[in-house]
Amino acid sequence: MITFSSFPAPPQDNYTFGVQQSPGLDNDVEMDLNLDDDEFESSGRRLTYPGEAITSSQAFMRGHGTYVDHEEVIASVSGTVERVNKLISVRAIRTRYNPEVGDLIVGRITEVQPRRWKVDANSRQDAVLMLSSVNLPGGVQRRKLESDELQMRTFFEEGDLLVAEVQAFFADGAMSLHTRSLKYGKLRNGQLVTVPPALIRRLKSHFLTLPCGVDLILGLNGYIWISKHVKQSEQEGEEGFDAEAVYSNRNDEIDDATRSAVSRVSNIIRVLATHFVPLTDSILLNAYEWAVEQEGDVKDLLQEDIVRCVLLCNNDNSVYEV
């Protein structure tokens, strides 16, 4: 037998402009709905652990790395809390780099193949740099010839480091890179530091220059390149660029002061990354200025008591537990 039952219509008071309101929504939750990003960051820690209650599920929607239990959004992984409007997600600290089109990455050439290079980008699979996606001698965008394919190792070979931009994705999910600008290309005169990709914040520019004469490239894939400062005028001039200088494997002469500055910056980054501090230009600059004021040895930055001072020298140290 088939029976029909009618369900009571929801009260009209719980609907506003076609959006259903939770019947248990009180004044405190309604105020939470109007929180801006700064208030959210100041009211909670940037780092969270599995099982920690982040916020109310009535005020926010859960995203990746979270679940709902007893009307609360709970973190399911250890990582940093991120918010986009009313969507709350947790970005895991220990995870592979998840690329997006337009990302700036630092990678290492692992294999030279016909008309392409394989690049280790700290992702789930190697990236691909096509021969048609690099700058060739002459500075003119032209069709790549067979002679260019025979000279691929004069541009990049196994072990070379480069900075590139994510251009697209292949059908299997592999990244397609390009270095069609002189701000991209082979890296020299520096040192590579690896940190968890989740600690690299998206900035207006990932090419930073510190007052100590050190250039930083913050790759979103967790690879950071620290090198001596190169004047902007030396990188300009797309037409007829010097291919020997751009694709050279020989490092320039680096004075002792620059070497010390590069080592000091790399130690600061290692200290901050060990304590899961997000890396931004302001945090790195504050930490470096404090380290210079101490006038200590470069290796002293790795001592435990100095580590605490480096972490506390930032203005937002209250969100980190040392």
Rank of each mutant, 00 (worst) to 15 (best):
M152A: 13
G102A: 07
S205K: 13
D281W: 06
A273H: 13
G139N: 13
I93D: 02
V307F: 06
L162I: 11
V307K: 15
D69M: 08
C309H: 14
L210N: 13
G65M: 04
T194S: 03
V19F: 13
V322W: 02
V106W: 10
R143Y: 02
F17L: 13
S132L: 04
N251R: 05
K299H: 10
S233F: 08
D305I: 05
P197C: 09
F4Q: 01
H229L: 06
F7P: 01
I224Y: 08
G107P: 05
D316Q: 09
E158F: 01
V119W: 11
G107L: 02
V166P: 04
L272G: 03
L284E: 06
G65N: 03
L216G: 06
H178W: 10
E111A: 00
A121F: 09
N267R: 02
F4R: 08
E52A: 15
L208E: 06
D255T: 06
D281C: 01
T280V: 09
T179W: 02
K228N: 00
E295N: 15
F241R: 11
Q20S: 12
I226G: 03
I268A: 04
F40W: 11
E321M: 14
A127N: 02
V140S: 11
H229S: 09
T258Q: 00
P196T: 05
A257L: 05
A127L: 05
V271D: 03
G102R: 10
Q191C: 12
S260Y: 03
L177K: 04
A121H: 03
D300T: 15
G44I: 03
V101Q: 14
Q141I: 12
A53N: 11
V271M: 01
L129T: 08
G138A: 05
V81H: 01
M1P: 07
V230D: 04
L33S: 07
V68T: 15
L35F: 12
V277Q: 07
Q12Y: 02
E244W: 07
V322C: 10
L203P: 00
A53P: 09
D316C: 05
D215H: 13
N315M: 01
E293P: 05
D255E: 09
F7H: 02
L279D: 03
Q151P: 00
P137L: 02
V77N: 09
N85I: 07
L25I: 12
D297I: 07
Q58H: 02
D126G: 04
F156W: 05
L312V: 10
L145D: 09
V246F: 13
L87V: 14
P8R: 04
A243H: 06
Q294W: 06
L199N: 04
G296C: 14
G237H: 07
Y320E: 06
S76T: 15
T194N: 06
I283L: 07
P114V: 05
N189G: 06
L272W: 07
R108I: 00
N221A: 13
V81T: 04
R94H: 14
S22Y: 13
Q21E: 12
I88H: 01
A198D: 05
S147Y: 00
V101R: 11
T110S: 10
D38L: 15
I306N: 08
L35W: 11
V193M: 10
